[in-house]
Lab assay of single mutants.
Amino acid sequence: HNLTITQGKLFFHYNPKLCLSEIHKMEEVSGTKGRQERNDIALKTNGDQASCENELLKFSYIRTSFDKILLRWEPYWPPDFRDLLGFMLFYKEAPYQNVTEFDGQDACGSNSWTVVDIDPPLRSNDPKSQNHPGWLMRGLKPWTQYAIFVKTLVTFSDERRTYGAKSDIIYVQTDATNPSVPLDPISVSNSSSQIILKWKPPSDPNGNITHYLVFWERQAEDSELFELDYCLKGLKLPSRTWSPPFESEDSQKHNQSEYEDSAGECCSCPKTDSQILKELEESSFRKTFEDYLHNVVFVPRKTSSGTGAEDPRPSRKRRSLGDVGNVTVAVPTVAAFPNTSSTSVPTSPEEHRPFEKVVNKESLVISGLRHFTGYRIELQACNQDTPEERCSVAAYVSARTMPEAKADDIVGPVTHEIFENNVVHLMWQEPKEPNGLIVLYEVSYRRYGDEELHLCVSRKHFALERGCRLRGLSPGNYSVRIRATSLAGNGSWTEPTYFYVTDYLDVPSNIA
């Protein structure tokens, strides 16, 4: 807008934040220059609390790290170098490059900038070799853009010569660093050979998330399962459950009422301010606690030095998902009996873990797994792929695949051998790939016309006998059925096997 004052003059007093240069501009645009008398524009009460600059400061050096910015700028000295009290560095987070010096300023003089007072450097006698002032900004957020400017702080001049310097606002972004852990990993099994893994992005990506790394490792069953005799009275049979499938998407929606109208769909109840505040506090606490764990609990591995020492970490090797089922080394339970199943799973520490690289999504279907087997899954978020990966501390989750139908069934015939004193040795093959492992066998036998009897055969007993022995049988026709019990439950009964026990007292003698 054009402003013209045809008559009258300007009068400025007691404006401590208004620089004289701005008042002189007002004289020019209003056409009143030359009308004012000496005392109409006070030299001592206008701009006496402001830094009124008329020179431009330029930054000469900028260096960044993930949490620091090192700045240096060209030296500046007023005509009387004693008038320079120091520099004021202003900075704040700036997602967009549209910041002005006066953003967030209120009537009390406060604003949204963080201000650092910096002492002037030592003055050199040689004007050509003056030290460049600077400042190291610490405690910054990774991968965050900051708006920065600097200006001088000078003393009051009796001659009211307006001098000083100020830089333009520059924008500097800190470097990326390792992201925080992925949030809320959930693993479920939808079949006997697959596990579905879902997660949420890290709360602090500290860069642009480029991919996720998912490692999985087959877990050995508890050692007590191999040692305890679950045929003993009072000892509860062990059981394991597989990871249940995901709930429906509708039930997972946030901010939804727990109660549904019987007449149909209901609208979600909005969260109160107290609920939102509580969630923010919980989120802040979780982030602080995660940072504490990362800094205190997890110790970084030592990389190899120039002395030739090897990095103890196993090298990563990509495998196809079809090879995942046989990740671990199978060892027989008892070496003397080769027909026992290889369900003991000690994992070799030198073995390469299978892994998958996930790009542009937060889910993965891990296939080719062994049925009813526990897996430990390790999830890392990465925001750099080359020249070397920059990934987060791992988040861990466990899951067990679903049982395989008929995996616990005894394959092959049940054979028998009759000894003296009416002892019958029953023999059968253990299931080759049971659900988890076989903890015991149930032997059901009966003599024709009598009630059915049951015998429990422990895992250890089966390994020693290759089956079991029935003792003290009365003469007669017998039928026997056997079924295995694994961590997933009972298998199917075998087809009945028949044998006849004679009275050993009636056996004919070869003595003449």
Rank of each mutant, 00 (worst) to 15 (best):
V457G: 02
K278T: 09
A488Q: 15
L321T: 11
F499L: 13
Y396R: 08
A399M: 07
G207P: 02
A488M: 15
H371E: 08
L487Y: 08
Q256S: 09
V327T: 10
D408R: 04
R240P: 15
K406S: 09
A394Q: 13
I276F: 04
N295C: 03
E388N: 05
I410R: 02
E495K: 09
V411I: 06
R313N: 09
S283H: 15
R400T: 05
L228Y: 15
K361I: 09
K302T: 02
G467S: 07
P434T: 06
V501Q: 07
R481V: 07
E217G: 06
S262W: 08
R370S: 14
S341V: 12
D450W: 11
V297M: 08
P431S: 05
Q219M: 06
A394P: 08
E247M: 09
V480P: 02
E281C: 04
K278W: 12
H461S: 10
L379V: 09
D311T: 13
F289N: 01
Y230P: 02
K278G: 14
S458P: 11
K287H: 02
E430L: 11
G449N: 08
S398R: 15
W242F: 07
F355S: 11
G368L: 05
M427T: 11
H416T: 08
K361R: 05
R316I: 15
F226W: 04
S315W: 08
Y230K: 04
K271G: 03
S262M: 12
E279R: 05
N339D: 10
S474Q: 08
A399C: 04
Y292S: 03
K460I: 10
S305N: 15
E260I: 03
W493C: 00
A309F: 02
P431N: 06
E442K: 10
F289H: 01
L440H: 07
D408V: 02
Q429T: 15
V443A: 05
R286T: 02
V507Y: 06
T343H: 11
R483Q: 06
F298V: 02
E442A: 11
D408T: 06
K233I: 01
E362A: 12
P238A: 02
L225A: 04
D229K: 05
C231N: 04
L464N: 15
A335I: 08
P244W: 14
R376M: 01
T307D: 10
Y212A: 04
R353I: 15
E442L: 14
P349Q: 04
F462N: 11
Q275F: 06
G412M: 13
K233A: 15
H371G: 11
H416I: 10
V365K: 02
E389H: 09
E279T: 05
E221M: 15
L228A: 08
E249V: 11
Y500I: 12
I482Y: 01
T272M: 10
T497S: 09
T373V: 14
Q256I: 12
H461P: 05
Y504P: 10
R400H: 10
I366V: 11
Y478C: 00
Q384W: 13
A399L: 09
E404W: 12
T340W: 14
F355T: 07
S474T: 09
D385K: 13
E221A: 12
P387W: 14
V423S: 10
S283A: 14
R471E: 15
P312V: 13
R301F: 03
V327L: 10
V501R: 02
L277A: 12
D385I: 13
E388L: 06
E260P: 12
Y445W: 09
K271E: 02
S444Q: 14
D222N: 14
V423K: 04
A399D: 00
T347Y: 10
L225K: 09
R400S: 08
R319D: 09
S304L: 06
I366R: 06
Q380G: 06
G322D: 15
T485W: 15
L379S: 02
